[in-house]
Computed example of a mutant assay.
Amino acid sequence: MFEQLTEQFQSAMKPANNLMAVNIQTFEKLTQHHTALLSGVVNDTMTYTKGLSGQKDVSAYMESNKSFLEGLQEKFTSAAKDVYGILSEAQEQTAETYKDLFAHSVPAGKAAPKSAPKAS
């Protein structure tokens, strides 16, 4: 009897555990991605700053600014696409978990009632 209750509890908690796992994985991926992005931006900024000290004329200075900003724009655009991909993957996994949950919660061949029966 106790084993049956334990098994039912574990079965009932499986969707919640799956959702928690998806959240944890997504958080870890986003954390790693943002850490790499921030490290890259800091390194690019340091390189840019060191390069500015060697600029003697305005045109070289402006070209240096332009290339730095274009690099940042490219980096942030790529990062946004990556984050969108990570979140889309998490959304798909979550939707699949809910789909499985609702498929198992309503017995096959029986539709859930749409409204409460009228009281006479």
Rank of each mutant, 00 (worst) to 15 (best):
A60M: 11
Y61W: 08
T77H: 09
T35N: 06
N43H: 05
A95T: 13
Q32I: 00
A21T: 03
P117F: 05
P15R: 13
K66G: 00
E70A: 12
M13N: 12
Q8N: 13
T94Q: 06
V58N: 03
H33V: 00
V41S: 05
L5N: 10
F68R: 04
Y48N: 01
G54N: 05
V22F: 05
M62A: 06
S39P: 00
K81D: 10
N17G: 05
L30P: 03
S78L: 02
G85P: 06
N43M: 06
S78G: 12
I24F: 10
A116E: 10
T6A: 15
A108T: 12
N23S: 15
E28C: 07
M20G: 07
E89N: 14
N23W: 07
G109E: 09
Q25F: 01
V42Q: 05
A60H: 03
V83T: 14
E7P: 01
V58F: 04
A79N: 08
G85L: 03
T45Q: 10
T35W: 00
V83L: 09
K50D: 10
V106Q: 11
T97H: 00
K99T: 03
A111T: 11
P15G: 13
H34F: 10
H33D: 01
F68C: 07
A80K: 13
K118T: 11
Q32N: 09
E28R: 11
N18D: 14
D82L: 02
F76V: 14
E96N: 03
L30D: 00
F2Q: 12
K56C: 01
F76N: 07
E96S: 10
I24K: 09
A103R: 08
K29Q: 13
D44Y: 04
Q32H: 08
Y61M: 10
I24G: 01
S115C: 01
T31G: 01
N17S: 14
T6D: 15
T49W: 04
P107I: 07
T49Y: 01
A79S: 14
L69Q: 10
A79V: 05
L37S: 06
L52C: 08
Q91F: 09
V41Y: 04
S11V: 02
E92G: 11
I86N: 04
N23I: 04
K66P: 03
L5Y: 09
N18F: 04
I86W: 02
A60K: 07
A116Y: 11
Q55I: 04
E63G: 08
L5V: 08
H104P: 01
Y48S: 06
